[in-house]
């Protein structure tokens, strides 16, 4: 891996107790939830990682510990580097500190993660759903949420599905 990235990863290992892995030229650093805001601030101020490109999550159900990984991808414009931070989140403790103080884009992106996965961010100024309707129940991108697939109508089952479909009368 790149020399600059190697030094940054070493500092993160000392300060935040992070582990890392590499794949196809990318570096993924695993950080715990309580150290993530400090790591982001450190990377933004000391190493000029000024752009937070991605803030999303992955669900690893039925594995409970950890169930989610929250992913932060940082880009440094001046040095042309990229770094990915991953935070494991357990199923029985779905709370994380918010990164809104470090990057303003985290405001909407964390609302999206809450809406789609149910992970709550403490200290977020506006904890509402963003993509689904306000009274929607459930978190769609979790693996135990069904796709909502409707059975397609072929010629052999056309009439029986037609009777069940909720057409509007007028």
């Amino acid at each position: 891996m790149d020399n600059t990235i190697e030094k940054i990863v070493q500092v993160l290992q000392e300060k935040a107790g992070a582990t890392f892995e590499e794949f196809r030229g990318e570096v993924h650093v695993f950080v715990n939830a309580d150290k993530i805001v400090d790591s982001l601030t450190f990377l933004r101020d000391e190493h000029a990682f000024s752009l937070l490109s991605v803030l999303t999550a992955v669900d690893y159900w039925p594995q409970e510990n950890p169930r989610f990984h929250v992913i932060y991808q940082l880009t440094s414009l001046t040095q042309n580097l990229s770094l990915q931070l991953r935070v494991p989140v357990n199923a029985n403790q779905l709370k994380m500190p918010t990164a809104t103080g470090v990057f303003e884009v985290a405001n909407w992106r964390e609302r999206e993660v809450y809406d789609m996965f149910g992970i709550e961010f403490e200290g977020h100024p506006d904890p509402r759903r963003i993509l689904m309707a306000e009274d929607w129940i459930g978190h769609p991108l979790r693996k135990d949420f069904p796709l909502g697939y409707e059975e397609p109508q072929f010629s052999f089952n056309f009439e029986e599905i037609d009777l069940r479909k909720p057409y509007v009368k007028e």
């Binding site: 759903r129 949420f145 796709l147």
Partner: peptide, 14 residues
Amino acid sequence: IGYLHTGVEKNMEA
């Protein structure tokens, strides 16, 4: 926003 939410990310997993 959200009035055009299509669920593409979940649908692509299937």
